[in-house]
């Protein structure tokens, strides 16, 4: 019952979401610019690698890696935790609940439709990086590229679900923004956003391999930059799938529980 409804509603949902996203396109440009840390980190690690390769990574590898994090970060960007927690707190969620499509689908459509604008803003920046160090462009091979696409999709889903879960917590607690900030500060290290995991101390890499952070960024980036052996790729994609499954359960459960509370406010 639900799936056919979603399919029927999709064209309208897309039209409305596209209008919402493009209404704030200047704002979206600013949001893209908030994710420029890979450029800063590239400058840093480029200097570090100037004295010789670090853990096997030379300057071109660093440019390739951080070009990858820049791209994947944008491809998986969303802001559902802030939208959701704000709308729960202010009651703006109510009109969304009246629509026949689940609010999470509404958010998801919006975030996907923001992608073309994001890519439009990002491409000159990426082009600049490529012009600065052309040797970073290496075709990973058709198989690795296909896996990269799958992996980016899973990473997007993971980011969306994690943010949604933290946002849903606004049904119970007030501090969801602080909660997400703390998550993000750990994510920044263990996702491979600040530095490639190849240069981590052994214990950090060992821990980081199994934490959920890597699955949201480093896995697709390493698939694209060719830094992942086939066995590790299989393990990492499996982990991505496992985290997605776990989070789907968690988000579903939390949403039902939370919504029951929301109704109790009389909002």
């Amino acid at each position: 019952m639900r799936a056919p409804l979603l399919v029927r509603a999709l064209p309208d949902l897309v039209r409305v979401s596209a209008a919402e996203v493009t209404a704030w396109r200047a704002e979206l440009i600013l949001w893209v610019l908030t994710a420029t840390l890979p450029l800063v980190q590239l400058a840093l690690w480029n200097t570090v690698a100037a004295d010789g390769p670090v853990a096997g990574l030379d300057q071109a590898d660093m440019a390739r890696y951080f070009g990858g994090t820049l791209l994947v970060r944008q491809l998986t960007a969303n802001w559902v935790t802030w939208s959701l927690s704000y709308e729960i707190r202010s009651g703006a969620l109510s009109p969304r609940l009246l629509k026949p499509v689940h609010p999470l689908w509404q958010y998801a459509t919006q975030m996907v439709l923001a992608m073309p604008i994001r890519m439009g803003v990002l491409s000159p920046i990426l082009l600049g990086v490529v012009l600065w160090r052309p040797e970073l462009v290496v075709w990973p091979g058709a198989a690795a590229f296909a896996l990269f696409l799958v992996s980016v999709g899973l990473a997007w889903l993971l980011q969306f679900l994690i943010q949604a879960l933290v946002g849903i917590l606004a049904f119970w607690v007030d501090k969801t923004d602080a909660l997400f900030a703390a998550w993000f500060s750990v994510w920044l290290v263990f996702s491979g956003y600040a530095a490639p995991m190849a240069v981590f101390p052994d214990w950090m890499r060992a821990v980081g391999t199994w934490l959920p952070f890597r699955a949201t960024l480093a896995t697709p980036v390493e698939l694209l930059s060719g830094g992942l052996a086939p066995g590790d790729a299989a393990r990492d994609l499996g982990l991505q799938l496992a985290w997605v499954g776990l989070l789907l359960l968690g988000v579903g459960l939390a949403w039902r529980r939370g919504l029951a509370r929301y109704g109790a406010f009389g909002a």
Binding site: Q41, L44, V48, D51, V54, A55, A182, S185, V186, L188, V189, F190, A194, A195, V199, F200, P201, M204
Partner: peptide, 13 residues
């Protein structure tokens, strides 16, 4: 967590 990136940096240099 804020110390993390610096710890990583000086684990290799």
């Amino acid at each position: 967590a804020a110390v993390g990136p610096t710890v990583v940096l000086f684990s290799v240099r």
